[in-house]
Design a binder for these strands. Structure first.
Lengths: 153, 153
DNA sequence: GCTGAAAATAGGCGGGT
DNA sequence: ACCCGCCTATTTTCAGC
């Protein structure tokens, strides 16, 4: 399932992940190639699922999402059914922007974006009423120092 | 500096943050409006900085970035100069995808994406050689259950 | 697999309502 | 402020090399 990506593909991705709004001509010039081959490579990478659709990142602060929490979760339950319900709950809640299953002491970490601390409490109460967790620690972000999804290609 | 966003703007943002690749006509139809007003609203939101340029999210796994760490950092140093250097180090390192200054016990959390555990160690050694930290805990992600930057508008 | 051009489509802009 | 249609740029396809 691993895909072979050459240097040109990497350059194209690098351009797209910083600004996908430019014309093919500009991107082609930036990577030292021409329109058609660049277009073909992008199409192939889309089909291979290496890149998703272009998206726009809204400014959370400007839209009133002023509270970000990182939530560390321990659970004592590790049965398949519990996991399935927990996963479904995370997927269903739009305030959960990231969810990872971890190795070690802490079982899960979530990144939760909400309008304010009050809204976090609503989320938290709803979550623990849906699935049983052993211990939850919420870390409140005071300042977002960096936020990107760009990979160092 | 707060911007007034009405229901139509919210709908447009909602469309754009899931797929910015569709034509203006399609988006206009989806939000129940027409080309010109939608275009004007998008332009205004871009100018106001509410949305950045369209970008494409590459599939990290497919590109060989197979290790994600969440790094919890405690420090004893809180002088302005230390903070400045720490911030500069984070900005300069492309493997740092997120960095937040926290309230409470733990001072900072980072999300670090690297090719493998070995690469994380390289990053870690480089970081602690640049800035002094008191305590570092790395949480290794076993599975990315959810990852989005979309806001619930 | 690249080039260049042709066809299809969407962005951008002005006038009208 | 929105709707409509024109013009232009860009995307997408397809021939030939």
């Amino acid at each position: 399932m691993s895909v072979r990506i050459d240097e040109t593909d990497r350059k194209i991705l690098s351009e797209l992940q910083t600004d996908a709004g430019r014309s093919l001509d500009e991107i082609a010039k930036a990577v030292g190639s021409s329109k058609t081959p660049v277009w073909n490579r992008i199409r192939k990478m889309r089909e291979a699922g290496i890149i998703g659709p272009p998206t726009v990142v809204p400014d959370a602060e400007a839209l009133g999402f002023e509270a970000t929490f990182f939530v560390l979760i321990r659970t004592s339950e590790h049965e398949a059914d519990w996991q399935r319900r927990f996963l479904a709950a995370l997927q269903a809640r739009p305030e959960v922007q990231e969810a990872h299953r971890l190795a070690g002491d802490i079982d899960y970490i979530l990144k939760v974006r909400v309008k304010n601390a009050r809204a976090y409490d609503v989320f938290y109460q709803a979550l623990i009423s849906e699935v049983r967790v052993y211990n939850v620690t919420a870390l409140l972000s005071m300042e977002e120092l960096k936020s990107t999804r760009a990979l160092p290609l």
